[in-house]
Amino acid sequence: GSPGIQSFLPPGWEMRIAPNGRPFFIDHNTKTTTWEDPRLK
Rank of each mutant, 00 (worst) to 15 (best):
26 I>Y: 10
30 T>M: 07
7 S>G: 15
17 I>Y: 13
27 D>A: 01
37 D>I: 04
2 S>W: 11
32 T>G: 05
39 R>A: 09
16 R>P: 01
10 P>T: 02
22 R>Q: 10
8 F>S: 15
26 I>R: 02
13 W>Q: 00
12 G>S: 03
21 G>F: 03
4 G>H: 13
19 P>L: 10
9 L>P: 01
37 D>E: 05
8 F>T: 15
15 M>E: 15
31 K>N: 14
11 P>G: 07
5 I>F: 14
17 I>S: 06
20 N>P: 02
36 E>R: 08
7 S>Y: 11
1 G>R: 05
9 L>F: 07
40 L>V: 12
17 I>E: 07
4 G>M: 11
8 F>V: 15
41 K>E: 15
14 E>G: 02
10 P>N: 02
24 F>V: 08
10 P>K: 07
8 F>L: 15
33 T>S: 13
35 W>D: 05
33 T>D: 03
1 G>H: 11
19 P>N: 11
41 K>Q: 15
34 T>D: 02
13 W>N: 00
18 A>N: 07
18 A>C: 08
12 G>V: 01
30 T>F: 05
5 I>P: 14
39 R>N: 11
10 P>V: 04
39 R>D: 04
1 G>T: 12
13 W>P: 00
3 P>I: 11
7 S>V: 11
16 R>A: 11
34 T>E: 02
39 R>G: 11
6 Q>K: 05
31 K>E: 11
33 T>W: 14
37 D>G: 03
32 T>M: 10
5 I>M: 13
29 N>Y: 08
41 K>S: 15
6 Q>R: 02
26 I>M: 06
28 H>T: 09
1 G>L: 13
23 P>W: 08
28 H>V: 06
36 E>N: 09
6 Q>E: 14
24 F>G: 00
34 T>I: 04
17 I>N: 06
20 N>L: 02
8 F>Y: 13
19 P>G: 09
10 P>S: 04
21 G>V: 00
12 G>Y: 05
36 E>G: 04
7 S>W: 10
37 D>T: 04
21 G>A: 02
23 P>N: 06
11 P>E: 10
33 T>A: 14
12 G>W: 05
9 L>K: 01
6 Q>N: 13
10 P>Y: 06
9 L>R: 00
37 D>W: 09
26 I>H: 05
20 N>V: 02
8 F>I: 15
7 S>F: 09
16 R>I: 12
5 I>S: 12
2 S>H: 11
8 F>M: 14
41 K>R: 06
22 R>D: 07
18 A>G: 10
10 P>F: 05
35 W>F: 12
20 N>H: 06
16 R>Y: 09
20 N>G: 10
25 F>I: 00
3 P>S: 12
38 P>E: 01
8 F>N: 15
18 A>K: 05
9 L>N: 01
3 P>V: 10
16 R>M: 12
15 M>A: 07
21 G>L: 03
34 T>G: 05
34 T>V: 05
15 M>F: 05
24 F>Q: 07
32 T>S: 08
32 T>P: 00
29 N>F: 08
16 R>V: 13
2 S>E: 12
11 P>Y: 10
17 I>D: 04
25 F>S: 00
25 F>P: 00
36 E>Y: 09
31 K>Q: 13
37 D>F: 07
13 W>D: 00
21 G>S: 03
4 G>L: 12
7 S>I: 10
28 H>Q: 06
41 K>W: 15
24 F>E: 06
26 I>E: 03
18 A>R: 05
25 F>Y: 09
4 G>R: 01
7 S>L: 13
30 T>H: 07
37 D>N: 03
25 F>M: 00
27 D>Y: 03
34 T>M: 05
12 G>I: 01
10 P>L: 09
29 N>W: 08
41 K>T: 15
17 I>K: 08
5 I>E: 13
29 N>I: 08
3 P>R: 01
32 T>E: 07
33 T>Q: 13
35 W>N: 05
24 F>S: 02
6 Q>V: 11
38 P>G: 01
20 N>R: 01
3 P>K: 06
7 S>C: 13
10 P>D: 04
14 E>F: 03
35 W>Y: 10
7 S>E: 14
27 D>S: 02
37 D>Q: 06
10 P>Q: 04
20 N>K: 02
32 T>D: 04
37 D>H: 05
11 P>S: 11
18 A>Q: 07
34 T>L: 03
14 E>V: 06
23 P>F: 09
30 T>S: 10
17 I>Q: 07
27 D>Q: 03
15 M>T: 04
11 P>I: 08
35 W>S: 05
26 I>A: 01
22 R>G: 02
5 I>Q: 14
20 N>M: 03
9 L>Q: 01
32 T>K: 09
14 E>D: 06
14 E>T: 09
36 E>A: 08
36 E>H: 09
31 K>P: 03
40 L>P: 15
19 P>I: 09
3 P>N: 12
28 H>F: 09
3 P>Y: 09
5 I>K: 12
28 H>W: 12
16 R>E: 07
16 R>L: 14
4 G>N: 13
9 L>S: 01
22 R>E: 08
26 I>S: 01
38 P>W: 00
19 P>M: 09
9 L>A: 01
6 Q>D: 15
3 P>W: 09
14 E>K: 02
8 F>P: 15
26 I>D: 00
11 P>L: 10
17 I>R: 13
16 R>D: 07
7 S>K: 14
6 Q>A: 14
31 K>V: 06
25 F>E: 00
35 W>L: 07
32 T>H: 08
38 P>S: 01
17 I>H: 12
21 G>M: 04
5 I>W: 13
1 G>P: 13
5 I>H: 14
34 T>P: 00
15 M>P: 00
16 R>K: 13
10 P>E: 04
35 W>M: 06
